[in-house]
Design a protein around this nucleic acid. Structure first.
Length: 553
DNA sequence: TTAGGGTTAG
């Protein structure tokens, strides 16, 4: 019997167990009357949670009369990780009013759940409890709080918490550096990185990921290269997380050669590293290379996940060739992830962009669960095909489902109105967007409105709309009006706008290119020459003037 | 003589 217990115990202290093995172990524990012991109960509960069997996990919790803080924390964590926030929070409250004292891990866990749910109010309540329970200086609670405030965009509050700690440990430094990373403040990140090193603490992979993340949106390639060199020096580049952020950083700077070099230096790149590289090729405009690397990944025998599938479907959509997209669809069906929201939405977009809207709609109709992204995709797709009325119906469904439309929803609707020439409906949706939903109109929305008015012959009205916008007006919006003038052959207004733009934006080359092209389209070469003189232009200053040839000039 | 965990990537 003793041997039996020993073997059972060794199984229970292993880090992971499959669901069938967990059930056997559970049965053995019950048979040996060990289930009342919170130690055994905690182990079994965790195994169930790892295997996503929340019902069994809860059952273990409910049937254990003596609940240690380990058991409480494990069930709260199980719900939090399954994104069942309310259950996690109710249990957290129950724990607070029970005889068991919560500990630092309890608060860290529930704080993280708040951040995952973007719930600042509850996070502040949890923060208050941390202080009330005398854990205001605890490293575990505070590293979680720093990270959570940062994730919610409250980096100043994170910094306030961080500065309250006397001698932060590596995890706390990392949490704060990542916090600056998530808000893109790379200068503060580097400042902190130096301060940390001055205290004698050596950085690890987490530190570097935080720093590099801060650089990604800033195209600060020089700083990035320095950090990369530092990682290599410290042998940190071999870590998958560090590797993939480096790949992402180089991709964002369109330095695919370097991205590839980092990727090649990874011993066994994981799915995220592959995915980053593949998306990088696509972002750099090399969609064929993206698909080529996707095939290479499959040849290694690894399995693609929904994020990667969505990414390669986007590459196929950009190429507007049906073949690869269909193959990926087949792969998704075979691996039972074709109904994942992310994959389905990418499939709809791919089919629509490849000219097979109906196939996209079929995917949409078969989706068991839809979110705003999938609705937005189908609205834009219908709009592109001029099926505005159908797009409006889908929009009504969005409202019936209780979803709140966002700027992409209205961009899709306005695009639909544009393609179908529905001026009144477009104006109604524009008003609805700003007045009812409080969404600020962006360049894309104005472009559609200008096109809508312009193509209806209301060029003056479109011109007035643009002039009512605060400066600076995006070149895309002026471009929309100029091309409407061109289509309507209203060269008088075109000239008025040209003069206005040249006077107000003399240094913006893109206007002179647009205007030259349009005048050239009308065969008005003298005006083009005059324009070039006016902007002090020589040929080299106006690249890409496609409709002007040397012969005409 | 047991257990958990706070910071990272597409």
């Amino acid at each position: 019997m003793k041997v039996h217990f020993k073997s059972l115990l060794s199984q229970l202290t292993k880090p992971n167990q499959t669901l069938p093995r967990t059930r056997i172990l559970h049965a053995l524990i019950i048979k040996n009357r060990l289930s009342i012991d919170p130690f055994y109960a905690t182990r079994i509960l965790r195994f169930y949670a790892i295997n996503n069997d929340l019902i069994s996990a809860r059952n273990v919790f409910d049937k254990t009369p003596q609940r240690s803080v380990f058991l409480w924390n494990s069930i709260i964590r199980a719900y939090a990780q399954a994104h069942e926030f309310l259950d996690a929070y109710v249990l957290f409250k129950r724990l607070l009013s029970s005889e068991t004292q919560p500990d630092n891990f309890t608060f860290a866990c529930i704080a993280r759940a708040c951040a995952d749910r973007f719930d600042v109010e509850v996070l502040r309540v949890v923060h208050g409890k941390v202080v009330a329970f005398g854990l205001g200086l605890d490293f575990i609670c505070n590293s979680a709080l720093v990270s959570c405030y940062s994730k919610l965009g409250l980096v100043d509050e994170a910094s306030y918490v961080f500065s309250g700690i006397d001698e932060p440990d590596l995890v706390l430094w990392n949490a704060m550096i990542s916090g600056y990373g998530s808000c893109g403040d790379w200068k503060k990140g580097i400042e902190l990185f130096n301060a940390m090193q001055n205290t004698g603490i050596r950085p690890d992979g987490y530190t570097m990921v935080g720093l590099i993340t801060a650089l990604i949106d800033h195209n600060s390639i020089n700083v990035g290269e320095t950090i990369h060199a530092f990682c290599v020096k410290c042998c940190l580049a071999l870590n998958d997380h560090v590797g993939s952020v480096l790949v992402g950083m180089y991709s964002r700077c369109k330095s695919m050669e370097f991205a590839r070099k980092v990727f090649d230096s990874l011993v066994q790149p994981d799915i995220v590293s592959w995915s980053t590289l593949i998306a990088g090729f696509s972002q750099a405009g090399d969609h064929l290379k993206a698909l080529e690397f996707f095939r290479k990944l499959l040849m290694t025998g690894r399995r693609a996940d929904p994020v990667l599938l969505a990414s390669v479907l986007t590459a196929s959509a950009q190429l507007a060739i049906l073949g690869p997209g269909c193959e990926i669809h087949g792969y998704a069906v075979r691996h039972e992830c074709n109904t994942e929201v992310l994959v389905s939405s990418a499939l709809i977009d791919m089919y629509a962009k490849c000219g097979f809207l109906e196939l996209g709609i079929k995917v949409f109709e078969k989706m068991p669960k839809r979110n705003l992204v999938s609705y937005n995709t189908v609205i834009s797709s219908l709009g592109l095909y001029g099926r505005a009325r159908d797009a409006f119906q889908v929009f009504d469904e969005v409202l019936r489902e209780g979803l709140t439309p966002d700027e992409a929803t209205f961009a899709g609707l306005l695009c639909a109105c544009c393609h179908s020439g529905l001026v009144n409906e477009g104006q109604d949706y524009f008003r609805m967007m700003t007045n009812e939903f409080g969404i600020e109109a962006k360049t894309e929305h104005y472009v559609h409105m200008v096109k809508l008015l312009g193509m209806d012959g209301k060029l003056e009205e479109a011109y007035d709309l643009i002039k009512s916008l605060p400066e600076p007006v995006s070149p895309g919006i002026w471009g929309a009006l100029l091309s409407c003038c061109d289509s309507c052959k209203n060269y008088e207004l075109l000239e008025v706008i040209a003069r206005y733009l040249l006077e107000n934006e003399p240094n913006n080359c893109s206007y002179s290119v647009m205007i030259s092209n349009l005048l050239a389209g009308d065969g008005r070469w003298d005006d083009v020459k005059q324009l070039r003189v006016e902007i002090g232009g020589v040929k080299g200053k106006m690249p890409g003037v496609s409709r002007i040839s040397d012969r005409n000039y």
